[in-house]
């Protein structure tokens, strides 16, 4: 109980453990011994981590219920892909511009809609995501339902890893500062937050735009990893998938998001041998998970190696 605030910061052991994990995965990558199939999963896991952590910033940390994350991802993907195809700019510029456009859209949409609360905001963002998808389906330049092909496949797994790393560091550092606390206070009680002198409108739009920026980056990486994008990659279900990762990991827990993302990226692949029962199992597990642990894997806490040992030592762990 008394360790509450200390538990919010990932500890040194965890950092060491993660560093070793990343190192060994990369050694395997460099040695060229990793099959392409696993490389693919690794890439998706990285992109999903960017998406989940950035959505956690909006949903878990700031408490603004967004169901439109795939929309921002789509904007980043299309803008960066179009730049690469037609303007042939360097990858980094294409990615950044895609992310900036997604962030701007986040501001334009966020300013009016963030006045809405809870479910209403969720519906508005859902609507926004759908509108973006329909626009992509109808524009000349996005080639409609056929999508964009022949995008240069210039993203490497290393770049995905790097961006995921930056996203996590950005969010963790933000969380530990007065700005992160301002975001948390909005989640807890918006009226009290405002009474503390916090410009809640600014911070909500900031969280929304930052989340959109990273989602846009993830979209750009996705486009340049796949070489092909279509509106069906960014349907409503994509937003839901990301949301599920965040909620399953625990709203507000960064390490929770990461762990849940890795599990949920690998799980459907692991279930591939059940082929047609795969999605049935996935949804069944999702329901059971929510029924038995509605606060997610981590609650609002952060994963700590010490805690993991204790969890195994006592078998039960602590309640939240």
């Amino acid at each position: 109980m008394t360790l509450e605030t200390k538990q919010k910061k990932p500890d040194g052991y965890l950092m060491l453990f993660l560093a070793l994990l990343i190192l060994s995965v990369n050694l395997l990558l460099i040695s060229g011994k990793m099959p392409a199939y696993y490389k693919g999963i690794l890439g998706f896991a990285g992109i999903n981590i960017i998406l989940a952590v950035s959505l956690n910033l909006i949903n878990g940390i700031t408490g603004q219920f967004s169901l439109g994350h795939a929309g921002f991802m789509a904007v980043g993907a299309y803008v960066s892909a179009l730049i690469s195809i037609y303007l042939k700019w360097p990858l980094i510029l294409a990615l950044l511009l895609g992310a900036v456009v997604a962030a701007l859209l986040g501001i334009i949409i966020g300013l009016p809609t963030l006045r809405l609360k809870g479910d209403y905001l969720a519906i508005a963002t859902l609507g926004m995501g759908e509108i973006i998808r329909v626009v992509l389906l109808n524009l000349e330049i996005t080639k409609g339902a056929r999508g964009l092909t022949a995008i240069p496949r210039s993203t490497s797994i290393y770049l995905v890893e790097l961006v995921a790393f930056i996203t996590v560091i950005f969010t963790v550092n933000l969380m530990r500062s007065t700005h992160g606390r301002a975001l948390l206070s909005i989640r807890e009680d918006e009226i009290a937050s405002e009474a503390m002198g916090i410009n809640t409108t600014f911070y909500k739009v900031f969280a929304f735009a930052t989340g959109a920026f990273f989602a846009g980056l993830a979209g750009g990486l996705f486009a340049h990893l796949m070489g092909y994008i279509a509106p069906k990659n960014f349907e409503f279900m994509r937003s839901i998938e990301i949301l599920v990762m965040v909620v399953l990991g625990g709203l507000g827990s960064i390490t929770g998001s990461i762990v849940a993302t890795i599990i949920l990226t690998i799980l459907p692949e692991a279930l591939r041998s059940f082929s047609q029962y795969r999605m049935v199992l996935y949804s069944g597990l999702l329901i059971i998970m929510m029924l038995f642990r509605p606060q997610g894997l981590m609650g609002t806490k952060e994963l700590q190696v010490r805690e993991v040992f204790r969890l195994f030592g006592f078998g039960g762990g602590k309640n939240v």
């Binding site: 949301l243 949804s283 069944g284 999702l286 509605p294 606060q295």
Partner: peptide, 12 residues
């Protein structure tokens, strides 16, 4: 439970 947990269950 928090409403978001029920929402995810509904999606499930």
């Amino acid at each position: 439970a928090p409403s978001i947990a029920v929402l995810i269950t509904a999606i499930g």
